[in-house]
Amino acid sequence: MTTAAAPLEYKVTARAVHGDVAEVTAAQAVVPIDAGWATPSTGAPGPADLLGSAFAACMLKNLARSGALLGFEYDDAHLEVVLHRQDAPPKFTHIEYALRISTDEPERRVELVHTNLRKFGTVYNTLAAVCEVHGTVTAVRRTQKKT
């Protein structure tokens, strides 16, 4: 009989001083956040920005995982994520992404990586369970980058 591993836990703490600063501590990083209401923007990321950032971090971390597990070689990656929200009721309706990977891998391997990003991303799958998530992965050939 096998036993399942205990689920991982992630602890995030946050603090706000009324009318002043707000910050989140995650892992070893302190991130200033915009947690004000009806106040001028602080320029720091707000909740929607942080959700989009978590999605992007998930995709890039999973790309690194795919690189290691599949032997997928790439130089760098650029990801753009757009979250669409509605006001009533307040929720995100869909998420779009465009990932550009600098690689000379064949197109079928690029598609395999895209499949893995959709299949094994924790944040990706969590968000896909509550709203539509779709996007593209495009290979930018290394020879094209040099021109």
Rank of each mutant, 00 (worst) to 15 (best):
M59Q: 14
R65Y: 12
L50N: 07
V12D: 07
N116K: 08
G67L: 05
T138A: 08
L69Y: 08
M59N: 06
K145R: 11
V31G: 00
M59S: 10
R118C: 04
S102M: 02
E9I: 11
T93R: 01
A64S: 13
N62Q: 13
H18A: 14
V113Y: 04
S41G: 03
A4T: 08
L50E: 06
V21S: 12
N125S: 10
P106H: 02
F92C: 04
R85N: 12
R100D: 00
A22Y: 02
T122L: 14
P89N: 04
G36C: 01
V30A: 12
T138R: 05
Q86E: 15
G71P: 09
V17L: 13
V137M: 04
Q86A: 09
A26E: 00
T42H: 03
D87F: 02
A128H: 09
V140D: 03
V30E: 15
D49S: 02
P47M: 09
L79E: 01
A29D: 08
P7Y: 06
P47K: 00
V12N: 09
D104C: 00
A16M: 09
T25R: 15
A29H: 15
M1Q: 11
G19A: 09
T115H: 15
T2M: 11
T13S: 15
P40Q: 11
A27F: 05
E96P: 00
H134E: 13
L79D: 00
P90V: 09
Q144I: 10
A68I: 08
T25E: 14
V140G: 02
I33Q: 01
A14N: 04
A22P: 10
D87S: 13
Y74M: 06
T39L: 15
K119T: 15
T126P: 04
G71L: 07
E9Y: 04
A64N: 12
V17S: 12
L63Y: 05
V12M: 05
G67E: 09
N116T: 08
F55N: 11
Y124Q: 10
T143N: 09
Y74A: 06
L127S: 08
L83F: 02
E23H: 12
L127E: 08
C58V: 10
I33L: 07
L8G: 14
G135Y: 11
G36H: 05
G36F: 07
H84V: 05
E111L: 12
D49N: 09
Y97D: 11
R141D: 06
H18Y: 09
A22H: 00
S41H: 07
F72H: 07
T2W: 12
A129G: 09
A29L: 13
A77N: 02
R100F: 03
V24I: 15
Y124L: 01
S102R: 07
Y124A: 01
I101M: 02
A22K: 01
R142H: 05
H18P: 06
V30Q: 13
E80M: 04
A6D: 06
G67R: 11
V110G: 07
V17G: 08
A68S: 13
T13K: 12
V81E: 03
P45G: 03
H134T: 02
P40V: 10
G43H: 08
A64P: 01
I33W: 00
D75H: 04
D34R: 05
N62M: 11
E105A: 15
R65D: 12
P45V: 04
E105P: 04
V123K: 07
E73R: 15
R108S: 13
V140I: 13
F55E: 12
